[in-house]
């Protein structure tokens, strides 16, 4: 069995009176593709922020690469993070190249300006996600799917060992979403450990090796076949939740049961 790249022990996170994470103990092995599912407000984003060390737990320990998450220092660069990007002003006339280059800023360090090596890394990252030809395009001019790839390229620009993604396909059409997940799969095949927060249960079934069901506390975590049952689903989403079966065999999305 591979070594744990992320290890949480009895982690509690409280925001004033709200408990975001309650007694979460979890190990994620190096090389795994792990999906975190759960309803809104279930602590999924908090979990990712704890792993990257910007949210400090109220109690418990979080270790990433064997080091306490808040003390990662330069090791933080081994983690790529694709956020929900809700706080970005897309009207800023930034090119895709400059946007991806931002991911190198921490690596470059303060008081310094990007060198040729940094620019090469940007080109490499854009090639990896197949958007090299969009380098000079403005971020605002990209489609939803292309934007997500630009965010992914920025997260990959330091060749991370661990990639965290927070609902990366929100607002992206189905075809682009499928392509995006295929891309994640190929990154995973190249050895990157992936932790993905998703509402898309389909991804869980087809890509993940491990599923973490979160509802502030850990409902279940295991291989998809063991976790994807109606009992765990209802613990997270309420008694009316159920799997919605398409004509294919994999359960696809969570819906409420109707009377008919």
């Amino acid at each position: 069995m591979s070594e744990a790249i992320v290890k949480l022990d009895n982690v509690f996170v409280k925001y004033s009176s709200i408990i975001a994470l309650e007694n979460v103990t979890l190990e994620i092995e190096e090389g795994s593709f792990c999906t975190v599912i759960g309803p809104n407000g279930s602590g999924k984003t908090t979990l990712l922020k704890c792993i990257i060390g910007i949210t400090k737990p109220s109690s418990g320990t979080i270790k990433v690469f064997g080091i306490e998450a808040t003390k990662l220092g330069k090791k933080r660069l081994d983690i790529g993070y694709v956020s929900q990007s809700i706080n970005i002003d897309f009207n800023v006339p930034i090119s895709v190249f400059d946007f991806v280059l931002m991911g190198r800023y921490s690596h470059i360090g303060m008081f310094r300006y990007p060198l040729k090596e940094d620019k090469n890394k940007v080109i490499e990252a854009m090639e990896m996600v197949e958007i090299k030809d969009l380098a000079n395009r403005k971020l605002i001019a990209l489609s939803g799917g292309q934007k997500q790839r630009a965010f992914l390229a920025r997260a990959l620009v330091n060749n991370p060992r661990l990639l965290l993604l927070d609902e990366p396909t929100t607002g992206v059409d189905t075809k682009s979403t499928d392509n995006f997940y295929m891309l994640l799969k190929s990154l995973h095949n190249n050895g990157i450990t992936i932790i993905l927060v998703s509402h898309d249960i389909g991804v869980v079934a087809s890509f993940s090796k491990k599923v973490v069901c979160l509802n502030n506390y850990l409902v279940a975590h295991d291989v998809p076949e063991k976790v994807m049952n109606e009992s765990d689903l209802q613990t997270m989403y309420g008694k009316e939740a159920s799997f919605f079966h398409h004509h294919d065999v994999t359960p696809h999305i969570v819906v409420r049961k109707h009377d008919d």
Binding site: K49, I52, N87, I88, D89, I94, M102, Y105
Partner: peptide, 21 residues
């Protein structure tokens, strides 16, 4: 000295934070 860092925190504060700035 901090030109690029100011640019990053102004454009995408969350991205800047997770990148370790």
């Amino acid at each position: 000295m901090f030109f690029k860092e100011f640019l990053f925190i102004s454009f995408d504060p969350e991205g800047a934070e997770v990148s370790g700035l």
